[in-house]
Amino acid sequence: MKTTDHIRVLAVSALICVASGSAVFAAENPNRFNRLFTPPEKAVQSIKDDGIHDPQGPAVGVLQEPKQAFAPLEKSISGNYVDWTASLRKQQISPLFDYQDPAKKPQPMDLNIVMEVKGSTPDVVFPHNIHTELLDCSVCHPQVFVPQKGGNQISMAEIMLGQKCGICHGSVAFPVSDCKACHSSKPPAAGGKKAAKKAADKAPKK
């Protein structure tokens, strides 16, 4: 073996040791911050070692890698780590509304439903707009949500167990860890929500 080869072997293995040694340490540190969170760099695995695909199967190497598909899309903090709404708005993706007729366009409905919630949590603002861009009315109404204001009692526990909003949010659409995506109303003025409501009630109506 030539000396240069020897150097190369030593240098490469030393580099690998240092680089991955630190990674191993990071994974093993029991007091790591947010230890139950999946760091974004580890969130997108290759299909071969993602835990559910059979690494011996012929699909590995043929199917598209998510990392490749997500590269040009807007990033987010949870789920697929892709902001699907922003990607759609910026026309980075152009999903068809009808699989047989590419010319068919959705007719979005502009109606925000504000749902008051307990405590100091910001109220939920439900935008019909993006939901009607992607879905038909019949997917949610009337089986999942009664089309009536105040007709739907929703709890976070229900959502996390896959009911109501949780049918999609928590399995496909952005998950509940992205709190502010739904609890997005502006915080009321000083004195909290109740004071703000009282003030609104007292204000003379024209």
Binding site: A27, T38, K42, A43, V44, Q45, I47, D49, D50, G51, I52, H53, P66, G79, N80, S171, V172, P175
Partner: peptide, 8 residues
């Protein structure tokens, strides 16, 4: 390290 597939 624990492998995980894509969300959804």
């Amino acid at each position: 390290t624990t492998a995980q597939a894509e969300y959804g």
